[in-house]
Nucleic acid binder design. Structure first.
Lengths: 255, 255
DNA sequence: CGCCTTATTGAACCCCATCAATATCTGTGG
DNA sequence: CCACAGATATTGATGGGGTTCAATAAGGCG
């Protein structure tokens, strides 16, 4: 019997990506991900080679970008929005196993097909290029691998961070931890608690948060209500959140 | 309120590694991890350079190899035994966030200090070398990075695999999944279910299994008893397991 | 406004943690 | 070899956190 039956309709639940590419970017110069992202490892000529086959795409929220265990044809750099990485069990139970933001790289070298499903959590803009074009550069340029490894490394740390939460934390602690995480990476200064406050929009629906935390939407909702009743957070609409007492939120996150 | 209070005595619970190095291995030739491990990326002269500062160590079960958030001084290759990667919450609740076997590499480049605790689950033999010696080679040789990235990549997949289990699976499914995992990597042929049977020794105690699965020892024990009562597994002692019906075990693992 | 999706709130149940007791294993010394 | 002791594992009884089922409320978009 299933512990958590937040099932998903595997095929009909989300739109399928229809490639409506917009404009070829031979102008990586103006790219926001140019310096922080993996492309930063490339010099101008390499960048030009890659950019000729690169395409900017805008992807509607909820669109499936890559299906679990399907072949990987393209890599991409996230320019805007939040991307969910998911795994599903045979009976449809789903777990979000990662969240990625700009300027993260999508796609792992050496892997012919994806071990996770990839889906736009919000409207997402990506810069996509054929796997082969990237792999060619990849084999030549070692600094590029440095960057990819660095990100993979960070994702691994994140994954383990959430394994800790999934395995040991209570529902209250999970939700507090999640809000803290969003607060931190939407406003990195919030971490060093200048004012003890933070404001942001949740990038995920209650259902997605529940998936991420291994809970149900009802439980997530109840925990958020509790935090509101304790005057630790305020809500404007269901997505916009003001954290009034960051230390108290941290207190409830269980470390 | 703690959901799972399988606390650990943070400092006294496990022995601390006392370096009693045995013999310098300028003979990587006979090393079991030579070809599959990361060292396989090195040519003979590079290998010789590295081996001069490499030391083989035998580490007793339960010994702490690296403490969480402490500085990393040495990297290592696992030659024998199972190594636990752990995270702890401030109140002592602990989660195993990874398990590593030979010929895995211990230590992530770019990270000055460890994000996980590292502990010998069984008696462990490692080949250790100073971080600086390795990093030097690392900067020169790109294939080495390939191998490290490949492993990091695999670890990330594993972490996500277990996030799925931690977040969505019931206790019964978690235990079945765990037994399947052990069965698979102690006998890779078991996967393709020739006989539908498998035999192995559990590398972890009930308490460690519980930590790994985000459960308690009691629950793990009960689930194992159930599998025994269903004649899916047999026990000789508490560690030695014979899986009689691999398909049935898979059935109960939830995919 | 009216429809549909998303979120909140309520009540009952159940899985698993918790507390507690017994059993089994392991190794150590007489 | 057996007796003993400490650790590890199993089994039992109880309770609570979170799921489940159900209904209401609030957004979002035509």
């Amino acid at each position: 019997m299933a512990l958590n039956t937040h099932y998903r309709d595997l095929n009909h639940g989300s739109k399928r990506l229809d490639i409506h590419n917009s404009n070829v970017t031979n102008l990586c110069q103006s790219c926001e991900a140019r310096h922080n992202g993996v492309c930063g490892a490339l010099d101008d000529s390499e960048l030009f080679r890659l950019s000729r086959s690169a395409v900017n795409k805008t992807i509607a929220a909820g669109t499936q970008i890559q299906r679990e265990s399907e072949a990987i044809g393209t890599y991409a750099v996230i320019l805007r929005g939040i991307v969910k990485l998911t795994r599903v069990l045979a009976d449809g139970r789903q777990q979000i196993v990662g969240l990625q933001h700009p300027p993260d790289f999508l796609g792992k070298p050496f892997e012919p097909n994806s071990k996770v499903g990839v889906e736009a959590a919000s409207e997402v803009k990506i810069c996509a290029f054929p796997k082969v074009a990237f792999d060619r550069l990849y084999a030549e340029k070692s600094d590029l691998e440095h960057r990819v490894l660095k990100q993979t490394s960070r994702e691994l740390d994140d994954a383990r961070e959430w394994m800790l939460a999934l395995g040991q934390k209570s529902a209250a602690e999970k939700v507090a931890s999640f809000l803290l995480m969003i607060a931190k990476d939407s406003d990195p200064e919030a971490e060093t608690g200048s004012t003890g406050q933070a404001t942001f929009d949740l990038p995920l629906s209650r259902a997605d948060i529940a998936d991420f935390l291994g809970l149900t939407t009802e439980t997530v909702s109840r925990q958020i209500t509790r935090l509101r009743e304790a005057a630790i957070i305020e809500l404007k609409g269901s997505r916009h959140i003001v954290v009034r007492d960051l230390p108290a939120l941290f207190e409830r996150s269980g470390g």
